[in-house]
Amino acid sequence: MTPSPPPASSPIVEANGSQTVAPDAPRKSHPADARSRNRSLVLGLLFHDGPLSRAELARRSGLTRVTMSDLVGELVDSGLVIEQGMQSRSGRGKPGMLVDVDRSALHVIAIDLSRPQSYVGAVISLLGEEAVRHSVPWPEGDSASAEAAIVELAQRLQAAAPGRVLGLGVATPGIVSPSGVVETAPNVGWTGFNMQSALARAVPVPVHIANDANAAAVGEHLLAGSRGDLLLVKIGRGVGAGILVRGELVIGSHMAAGEIGHVTVGTDPGDAPTCACGRRGCLEAWVSIPAVRRRLADGDAGVVRDAGERLGIALAPIIGALNLEEIVVAGPEDLLGPDFRETLVSTLQERTLPTQRRTIDVRRATYGDDAVLRGAGAIVLTAELGIR
């Protein structure tokens, strides 16, 4: 009898948005692994549904009350969870002590590098409240100038944090490696920019780097309650997409899933603009905010509808391939308003099957212009607390 082949390696999406591949040989499970999973499970239940009693946590998680008591005790001792008083009596039985994530004392530092004119950062509590916000103008020059500006912003934010900081999340344009290197970002001229290393030397908190569109997609899922399959399009200095399938980021074998900005959507030499990458007709050359503003300044009244149509041309095959039902657009509302959305929707309807048309929901990102900033904070919660 021929033995069955071993199971194929499966991709693992890391907390910082990177992807690794599990080894072919099955790894032995260790008690520490189960402990870590249970810890993340408890923190996730509390973050989304808390405060809850230990008994309720045990019931929802399927863990024993003894295990739950030990876990909650450890989380309280670590300062991540606090007791909030006895729950109201309902029915029989002794009321339990309510516990919750310490939302007011715990903070994340979030930085958004995708905006057209500045780097923006904030210190945000787990209540979602901003304690402080700073920005610095986009620096002139190469990645060394960018590094100095990003480090300055991160240090200012860290110094101003009013409580414990879980970590620093940075959402950046470009393809980001698992080690936090921006491998390439054509629209800002970066190649091999080791952002992780630069920030790790500058601030005394864990640092996590992610692509801007991926971060925004994680934020929409984690913070805004989007639970289905999702494609989030980030429009700023460039154009990119974050794709979630069953709540997990689609990263791709070279960390480049969602890099739709350099997909060609116009090939007529007479009307295809030149992109920052050197080619003609790339989506970014039609839809990025600098491109739209230039055409508006030149008196092109149809530029906003044109941008919506070009984006629809690029997205229709993705929707057809993945049967996605939710399209979220993150970008300036003054440019990406009703005319843009109307043209995008009509283009998608023209280019997809009728069965798909009925399920496509196109909407603006929940956090508007702060979608990427909030997403940068969300990647810290995923990386440091295991919350998904």
Score class of each variant (00 low, 15 high):
R351T: 08
S197G: 11
V123R: 00
S253C: 06
E259I: 00
N187K: 00
D369T: 10
S118P: 04
A161E: 11
S90F: 15
P23Y: 06
S36G: 07
L244A: 02
W190D: 01
V205M: 09
A241W: 01
G225Y: 13
A224T: 08
V263R: 05
S61E: 08
C277F: 07
L222Y: 13
A122T: 10
G73R: 11
T264N: 08
R341H: 13
S61I: 04
L344R: 04
R103F: 05
D370A: 12
A161N: 07
D112Q: 09
G375C: 05
R363N: 05
L75K: 02
P7Y: 00
W286I: 00
S125R: 13
P51Y: 12
P6I: 09
G228K: 07
I243S: 04
A376W: 12
P186C: 10
V303L: 06
G167S: 03
G302K: 11
Q155D: 02
P7F: 00
E325I: 01
I124E: 14
V263Y: 05
R164G: 09
L46K: 08
V136E: 15
A34I: 12
I109F: 08
G386E: 13
P290C: 09
E309W: 02
A161P: 06
G240T: 02
R293N: 13
D306Q: 12
S53H: 03
L296F: 07
T2K: 14
R341L: 14
V265D: 01
V76F: 06
V287Y: 09
E140S: 11
A149E: 12
V207L: 06
E325T: 14
S18V: 03
E284F: 00
A105C: 02
A272I: 06
V218R: 08
R280H: 07
E220A: 08
G228F: 10
T359M: 08
L63W: 08
G141Q: 10
V101W: 03
G320L: 04
P116Y: 00
S61Q: 05
Q349Y: 10
R388S: 13
R39H: 04
L244H: 12
F193A: 00
T191M: 10
S104E: 15
L63A: 10
E183A: 04
A378E: 10
L168Y: 04
S4H: 07
G331R: 03
I318C: 09
G247Y: 13
P26G: 07
T264E: 09
K234G: 13
A154P: 03
V13H: 06
V287P: 08
V292S: 09
G225K: 09
Q117H: 14
V132E: 15
P139I: 09
A378G: 06
L98N: 09
M1N: 10
Q196G: 10
A371I: 04
A285S: 15
N323V: 01
S179I: 04
D112Y: 13
W286M: 00
